[in-house]
Amino acid sequence: MRKIIKFLLFSLMVMLLLSGCNSNATDTNEDIFQYKNSFVGDNNAVGNIANQLPAAEYLNGFELKTSEEPYGIILNYDSLDSDQEYRETVIHNATFLFTLVQNVDWITFNSDIDEYTITKEQLEEWYGKELSEIQTENELRELIEENLEDTNKINHLF
C-alpha cells in the first residue's frame, strides 16, 4: 500500500512539474490582420496594431485625432538608434496602419530624432499601389521589404 501511495504522490509531482512547464498562454504575436477594416476611432484596435509593429518597445503612447476629417494618428516614440532605422520604421508602421485602419488619412511619428507626418495618399503613390487592396500579412510584408531595399527610394519619400 505504501508503494502505491508513494507512486501516486510521485506521479502527481511529475504532472504538476510538467504542467507548469507547458504554458498555454496565447501567442503574443497575434494575427495582426484580424484588425483589417478597423476605424481610427477604435482605440483598442489601433493600440493592438501599434504594439505588434517594429519598435513597439519604444512606443511611448499614441493619440487618435477623430474630431474632424481628415482623421489621423500620432505615435510617440522614445529614441531609436538611427535616422535610417527611424525612417524604415515610419514606412513599415505607416504601411500597416494605412492597410488595416480604413479611415486614417495621416500619421505623425514623433521621436527625439525627428517628426514625420505621412499621408495615405503619399504612401500609396510611393508604392504605386492602393493599400486597401492588400489582403494578407505576407503580401504586405513582401511589398514593404521590396521597397525598403532601395535607400534612395526611402530618402525620396522624406
Rank of each mutant, 00 (worst) to 15 (best):
R2F: 13
F7K: 14
F7C: 02
L9S: 08
F10R: 08
S11M: 07
M13H: 00
L18K: 01
G20H: 07
C21T: 08
A25G: 03
A25T: 10
I32F: 03
I32E: 04
K36L: 14
N37W: 04
N37G: 00
S38Y: 01
F39W: 01
D42E: 15
N44W: 07
A45N: 06
V46M: 02
V46K: 01
G47P: 04
N48T: 01
A50H: 02
A55G: 00
E57P: 01
G61C: 04
E63L: 13
S67T: 14
S67M: 09
E68V: 10
Y71T: 07
Y71A: 06
I74R: 07
Q84E: 09
Q84I: 08
E85L: 12
E85K: 13
Y86K: 03
R87I: 01
V90L: 10
V90Y: 05
I91K: 02
H92T: 15
A94G: 08
F96L: 10
F96C: 04
F96Q: 05
L97T: 12
T99Y: 09
T99F: 07
Q102W: 02
N103R: 09
V104P: 14
W106E: 10
N110M: 06
N110K: 14
S111I: 10
D112A: 07
D114F: 05
D114Y: 08
E121K: 15
G128Q: 09
S132D: 15
E133T: 14
I134E: 05
Q135H: 09
Q135D: 12
T136S: 15
T136H: 09
E139Y: 05
T151C: 00
T151E: 09
N155W: 04
N155T: 05
H156I: 02
L157F: 05
L157M: 06
F158D: 03
F158K: 06
